[in-house]
């Protein structure tokens, strides 16, 4: 299949992009295009205008502060994987990036594009929710932030408003003793995850967070993970807890409990 006809614009500034976005209600932003490309070809989306935001310098910036790092939305997965950008979480971002799809996808795909697309199986969504990251949205007038944990409102839906651009993501620095665990279950390398478990134990800051991702819904974020995730803990306790969050299908429940348990084991070790 081939896309239906559309116009293509390459703005050089964020304000130019916002203006284009507001000028056409059927416009769509494109960054790496790793999901949007196939969707265009399948005519699942038929925008009249594609706004390519990858040439906007602000969107590839890195801003380090004492307590975190802001990554522009168009930083690619490969930039994380290759260690070309700093990693506030002691290598966690690099490791997660390395497991996203295939290298060809990582070369073009971007952190902001992945978050804005809000596929439940996306790695960044679960990983960054566990790390307590927040996204920054810009609408041409001002900026607002919101936690990644609440960014996704439904499958392929986010709290980003019409006319807003997801400009970047701020990842906080965990404390030195913090432990991060991440486990994803895929039927094969590079395939969409069937279950993701992400765990951050940061006792110094009082964080014991567990995230169950790839649930065909927004990630499940649980703040008292220590209460039900233990080394060699039994799966039934994890399942019971996930069941409270609406996971009912036995197979899905099993996979998510296993992913969380294995992520927790990794964080303990």
């Amino acid at each position: 299949m081939k896309p239906s006809s559309f116009d293509y614009a390459v703005p050089r500034t964020l304000d130019e992009a916002v203006a284009l976005l507001n000028g056409d209600p059927a416009a769509k932003l494109i960054a790496g295009g790793q999901t949007l490309g196939p969707m265009l070809n399948l005519r699942l989306v038929q925008p009249t205008l594609l706004i390519d935001i990858t040439r906007i310098p602000e969107l590839t910036r890195i801003e380090e502060t004492g307590d975190g790092i802001v990554f522009g939305a168009c930083v690619t997965h490969a930039a994380f994987e290759d260690g070309r950008v700093p990693d506030p979480a002691g290598g966690a971002l690099r490791r997660v990036a390395r497991g996203i799809a295939y290298r060809a996808v990582r070369t073009r795909g971007t952190i902001g594009g992945s978050l804005a697309h809000a596929d439940p199986a996306a790695d960044w969504l679960s990983c960054l929710a566990a790390l307590g990251a927040e996204v920054i949205a810009y609408d041409g007038h001002g900026r607002r932030t919101m936690p990644v944990a609440t960014l996704m409102t439904g499958v392929f839906e986010t709290a980003i408003r019409e006319g807003e651009i997801l400009e970047g993501v701020r990842v906080p620095r965990p404390s030195k003793q913090a432990r991060f665990g991440y486990y994803k279950i895929c039927r094969k390398t590079g395939e969409f995850a069937e279950a993701i478990g992400a765990v951050l134990f940061d006792p110094e800051r009082g964080v014991h967070r567990a995230v169950a991702g790839a649930t065909e819904a927004p990630p499940i974020v649980i703040e008292d993970a220590a209460a039900f995730l233990q080394e060699d803990g039994d799966l039934d306790a994890v399942k019971a807890r996930l069941g409270e969050h609406g996971l009912t299908d036995p197979y899905s429940l099993q996979l998510h409990a296993v992913a969380l348990q294995r992520a927790a084991m990794e964080a303990w070790l």
Partner: peptide, 13 residues
């Protein structure tokens, strides 16, 4: 209807 639903082994499988 796409290769994300119809799964084939890749080099690692």
């Amino acid at each position: 209807s796409t290769l994300s639903d119809y799964m084939i082994p890749g080099p690692t499988e």
